[in-house]
């Protein structure tokens, strides 16, 4: 059973067992425009919730991606390194950035659900 949670900074964490697959939301990739470069963390790095985990750059903007949850980085998506455009094509799927082994599943409760995030986006319009 997977569930996707969101932050106000437009990161998502798709929970797969005790692992969170982290990326930026489809809304975020639209706002950024064409992504041209991604800076990913090293595998094994321990992140606290809110730490800078990655950087996503478009031509005109660079955005820090903050860890939505605490834990150790267990995998990064080499495909987006080579093909940053994947984030524009499929931010929620093939454009994922990193996987974090959850240190505290309780943190997920502080993130927004799919419906809450959709409502949050409406307030930004």
């Amino acid at each position: 059973m997977t569930e996707t949670r969101y932050t106000k900074d437009h990161e998502y964490a798709r929970v797969e067992g005790d692992v969170a697959v982290v990326g930026i939301s489809d809304h975020a990739q639209q706002q950024l425009g064409d992504v041209v470069f991604v800076e990913l963390p090293a595998v094994g790095v321990k992140l606290a919730k809110g730490d800078g985990a990655a950087v996503v750059e478009s031509v005109k903007a660079a955005s820090d991606v903050f860890a939505p949850v605490s834990g150790e980085v267990i995998e990064v998506n080499g495909a987006v390194d080579a093909q940053p455009g994947l984030i524009n094509e499929d931010a929620m799927g093939r454009g994922w950035l990193l996987k974090i082994k959850l240190a505290d599943a309780g943190e997920l409760a502080s993130l927004m659900s799919e419906a809450d995030y959709a409502a949050f986006l409406k307030t930004l319009a």
Binding site: V36, F37, E57, S58, V59, K60, A61, A62
Partner: peptide, 11 residues
Amino acid sequence: LTLSTREQHIR
């Protein structure tokens, strides 16, 4: 001008 995200006006 390219790779300008390294520069101060963005970063």
